[in-house]
Write a protein that binds this DNA or RNA. Structure first.
Lengths: 339, 339
DNA sequence: CTGAAAGCGCTAACAG
DNA sequence: CTGTTAGCGCTTTCAG
């Protein structure tokens, strides 16, 4: 691999001048620029990024930590973020914390020296103690995407969780349901709190008093979700509709519905946040709250780069909220109405 | 961030000695080692990886390029590879080439300076001309996983494609099918060639002459797959069973079966390589060839690290083949037999 | 506009 | 066993 020094010798100029050409400085005459560019061609020069990083203290790389790469939502988010990075000339490294807070903190630590900024969709499993938070916040800037820890004071980009939940509940109400249960993920996440709030608010607006017995708070462990759903579904008065606030509880709830031998939507109507399977082939097709993945990714990268590049002016915290879309499919169709 | 120099001053020793302690050299007395370790604690020292890389020409990082992160198989593979890397103390960066050969080559180029070795599951879309190949092979060592380009002479780890296909066909034969079609991905991939060969071989063993009209060669573009399948399924003599050689053609085929209004397995039996949806909830449940993802990932990392670490002895090319498992579910059940 | 020189933080000889 | 030294390849003053 040729170095700038080699170029300098080949072109008969100094190393500093070569550097100026390579980094596109204007302080170089046309003539020498041309000479250096020839040398670049001739020696097939590629700048050494590691050396550059050592000098500039910038890696020109962003990190994205997702909580579970096997959930279909996250690959889509990854693609969006990757596209945004590519557009801005940044390299992206993706890590999967496997819904494990310890691992997540490890990964954040690993990223610290390797990236200029971090996009974080946190695991639901997190404590985010004061100590941990300040430790993390002392590293490269962070923007939370999709999943926002309740306690951490950071920039974030996600959907308007409350409205999305309200929309889902309104839909179920309009289908004639009055007994609507909700199965949430961990309430340590701001999103889950908001989605729950939206659910409660929509019910109240419709003159229905939310019942605690219809709020099923689960974590993100499959077994846990299924156990909680099964237990509740087997009780004497089963709700006529169920809203899951994310893909994990959605899939878990659906599994438990089937395990018990109920069918959707005839025995129980079902709506979930996020897609949990390819939507055209498999039955039942699930009514879902779809997030604008692409926009989330782009806005998050944009925000993060602002933080990175304009560190001078301490921007106020941004909480960007985007609109989600409810896609109505079979699983919430009115009783007894079929294809 | 404290540097080794800071440590040296704090501990009253030289920088070189600090380095010896940090990199675990034995050539250090107990006493000075202790002094330095105290300094490390006191100053909360973290070695600077970039500086280390610049010096050692190693990043202690591996790269994994997958062709489509939205296909459920790849997130699982990523997890396995990530686990293997973690176990060996390596950092992993994952890139998604989106089934686009140009992008794939770009990414390979980006990785060149950032990793010590590359795991590649190639896009089906690739040409791998002589020029491109030698260009790539001049970079860090590569091991292909799951998908192997026909032309590229590299180490690889994948399932025994031929046997897996034979197994699938045998299963369909045992269910009474004689007219079995196959829908393949691009035959530029060694795997697809092998799977096709396995299909043909299994038929011949059963005394059935493979027909060209039952070999549907598609690419990895959804539209393409669906178009080809639809066209063929609408012909006068429809096969009674269909084998898809990967998750992409599998999902495409299934979509076209449904689009035409056929049902599985009553109108046509169906088997595919790889899982294309969560298996317990959605109907129909699909009979699938399951790959040992975990083992693939571990073997691939192991092989790659051998290449990286033992460059002296020019190891011969390894082609590791592992056994796949056929999981029989509804979609290939015998006609007229239901739950 | 160009050259010389320092130094980012680390490792790896090599003396002592 | 420890200190000194010379870079890895690049950017960035600072003189000229």
């Amino acid at each position: 691999m040729a170095t700038q020094n080699d170029l300098a010798k080949y072109a008969g100029v100094s190393a500093g001048t070569v550097s100026n050409v390579v980094s596109g400085s204007t302080r170089v005459s046309e003539k020498t620029r041309r000479k250096v560019e020839e040398a670049i061609q001739a020696l097939n020069y590629q700048p050494n990024l590691i050396a550059r990083s050592l000098k500039t203290q910038r890696t020109h790389t962003l990190g994205l930590v997702v909580p579970d790469i096997t959930i279909p939502f996250f690959p889509r988010l990854i693609r969006a973020v990757e596209a945004a990075c590519r557009e801005r000339g940044y390299f992206l490294v993706v890590l999967d914390s496997q819904e494990n807070h310890e691992l997540e903190l490890d990964m954040l630590a690993l990223l610290r020296q390797r990236v200029d900024g971090i996009l974080l969709a946190t695991s639901g499993d997190g404590d985010w103690t004061e100590a941990v938070s300040s430790q993390i916040l002392s590293g490269p800037p962070i923007v939370c995407v999709d999943r926002v820890p309740g306690k951490l004071n950071v920039d974030s980009v996600c959907v308007d969780d409350r409205r999305a939940a309200e929309m889902s509940v309104s839909h179920l109400l309009s289908m004639g349901h009055r007994e609507i249960a909700i199965v949430t993920g961990p309430l340590t996440l701001k999103n889950e709190q908001e989605r729950l709030r939206g659910y409660q608010h929509a019910l109240q607006m419709a003159g229905i008093r939310p019942k605690n017995s219809l709020v099923w708070n689960a974590g993100f462990q499959e077994n846990e979700v299924e156990a909680i759903c099964q237990r509740n579904l087997l009780r004497s008065q089963r709700p006529s509709a169920l809203l899951a606030t994310n893909g994990v509880t959605g899939l878990g709830a659906l599994k438990s519905i089937y395990a018990i031998g109920l069918s959707v939507p005839n025995d129980i109507a079902f709506v979930t946040f996020d897609e949990i399977a390819p939507d055209t082939v498999f039955k039942p097709q699930i009514t879902s709250v779809i997030q604008p993945t692409h926009e989330i990714g782009f806005r998050a990268v944009e925000l993060l780069l602002q933080r990175i590049l304009k560190k001078e002016q301490d921007l106020p915290r941004s909480r960007i909220r985007l609109d989600a879309t409810l896609v109505v499919r079979e699983s919430s169709r009115r009783y007894g109405i079929s294809d």
